[in-house]
């Protein structure tokens, strides 16, 4: 009995150590940055920028994170978002011209974006999960293809007939506060739902098993193929929401929306503690990752640093996070 008590204590200590290890890079950064941020900026313009970007890019990061937890990657998230943004404008204009109702047009625009995302996600999932193409290659290829479609429609800016209506989602100041937009609330709701879903549902749990040991999952009767496929669809839908938020924020669609989004999203996920090898991370990690990335770039722009320095520092930071992660990880390989 005594032996058991000791073993349990050891267990608990191990768990605590692990908790620290899993989150330490995040925790350290949050502490430093939050302090610095408040000192530098207070709750002014900087805060608005951070929240605006978090709401906008948060969904696509979350989608990517779910794919990454299965041990795969989606490098097409950027132009899945871009494409969905373009579709939403097409849908908006079609309905607006037919019915004249801005509300109906807005609803159809959102639906159009989500359906586009589901389709592109399904296509990605088809190549990765069904055909078995490496996710890296498949989604790079897909990114080119989606980019091509976006370029076709939106070489210059591509505007909805009623830009104010489309801006409702990302620009409405709830309670008079500029940073509190419907898009931010939608994103936070998605975070909460995804967090609970991944903890509570069978499918959510299966995602972790597939990412941790796909062979074990398939021997346990879990369909690795379907699990991965579905995560790509989810990633597509969440990317599409980001795409719509981008359009809603800008008031138009343009081919640059989606540019460099892939590297940004991966950075946010990695900083937040999502492992490239899969099996680890929650929606909260993603939220933290996005916040941290935005806080960092906001701080640097508050200091009027040239873009070259901003990029250099962001890159250095990513490496530092990965090194900390490496040094505190007890395994030789991740």
């Amino acid at each position: 009995m005594e032996e058991k008590v000791i073993a349990n204590t050891v267990d608990r200590r191990k768990q605590m150590v692990r908790l620290f290890k899993d989150n330490n890079s995040v925790l350290i950064l949050i502490l430093i940055l939050a302090a610095a941020f408040i000192v530098v900026d207070g709750f002014g313009n900087g805060f608005y920028n951070v929240m605006n970007y978090t709401a906008m890019y948060g969904p696509v990061c979350l989608g990517l994170a779910i794919v990454m937890i299965t041990g795969n990657i989606d490098l097409s998230a950027g132009f899945q978002a871009g494409l969905a943004g373009v579709t939403s404008v097409i849908c908006f204009n079609a309905v607006y011209r037919a019915s004249g109702s801005a509300v109906a047009a807005l609803i159809v625009a959102i639906l159009g974006a989500v359906i586009t995302g589901a389709i592109t996600g399904f296509i990605n999932g088809f190549f990765v999960a069904k055909i078995g193409v490496s996710s890296l290659i498949a989604t790079i290829a897909a990114n080119y293809a989606y980019q091509g479609v976006v370029f076709y429609f939106a070489q210059s800016s591509f505007s909805p007939d009623d830009a104010d209506a489309i801006k409702l989602i990302a620009r409405t100041k709830l309670g008079g506060m500029r940073w509190l937009t419907p898009s931010l609330l939608i994103f936070l709701a998605i975070v909460a739902v995804v967090f609970l879903w991944m903890y509570k549902s069978k499918f959510g749990n299966n995602i972790y098993i597939v990412g941790d040991n796909a062979e074990a999952a398939s021997y346990a009767g879990i369909s690795v193929r379907n699990t991965v496929w579905v995560t790509y669809v989810i990633c597509g839908v969440l990317s599409a929401i980001c795409g719509f938020f981008m359009v809603s924020s800008a008031g138009y669609a343009i081919y640059t929306q989606g540019n460099s989004l892939s590297t940004l999203t991966i950075s946010c996920c990695v900083i937040g503690g999502i492992k490239m090898a899969g099996g680890k991370g929650t929606a909260i990690h993603v939220l933290l990752g996005v916040l941290i990335m935005r806080v960092i770039s906001q701080m640097m722009s508050a200091m009027f640093l040239a873009q070259s320095y901003v990029n250099l520092i962001t890159g250095a930071l990513l490496i530092v996070v990965l090194i900390i992660d490496r040094l505190t990880s007890n395994k030789a390989t991740d």
Partner: peptide, 18 residues
């Protein structure tokens, strides 16, 4: 071995059978 190394013992025991 078909253990999922990042999951806890309980989830490994009931893998695919939660």
């Amino acid at each position: 071995l078909s253990i999922a190394p990042q999951l806890d013992v309980a989830k490994n025991l009931f893998i695919g059978n939660l």
